[in-house]
């Protein structure tokens, strides 16, 4: 579990991520990603494959085995870049309260 806390200094790393959500991150962005991609299992965002390699929905992992993955019906992606950026924004907001599209 990361103890790192995001500040406005990290906006440049958010911009780096937006430019290439599936690129190899620099050390600063990696530190942000370790926080955003970390955390407990319960409620963790995951992609739910609707059509392999083509179409994905968004879901959240449940706390316990046996419980179904929560499907978030309102979102569907046809690009992994788009999905990564969307989840990055959701998590950024959770950690900072900040709307990233506006902040950048």
């Amino acid at each position: 579990m990361s103890r790192y806390r995001i500040t406005n200094d990290d906006l440049k790393h958010a911009a780096e991520f937006r430019a290439d959500p599936l690129g190899i991150p620099g050390p600063g962005l990696q530190r942000v990603l370790n926080l955003l991609r970390g955390g407990p299992k319960s409620g963790k965002y995951v992609l739910v494959v609707k059509e392999p390699f083509k179409r994905w929905g968004l879901g959240r992992l449940p706390a316990d085995r046996g419980q179904p993955v929560e499907i978030i019906d309102s979102l569907e992606f046809t690009s992994l870049f788009e999905a990564e950026w969307e989840v990055f924004k959701l998590r950024w907001k959770t950690h900072t309260g900040q709307d990233l599209e506006q902040a950048l």
């Binding site: 599936l22 991150p25 970390g38 995951v46 992609l47 494959v49 392999p52 992994l80």
Partner: peptide
């Protein structure tokens, strides 16, 4: 997700 560097994909 951290060690793969991308979102986990839940297949059927």
């Amino acid at each position: 997700e951290i060690v793969t560097g991308r979102l986990i994909q839940m297949n059927p």
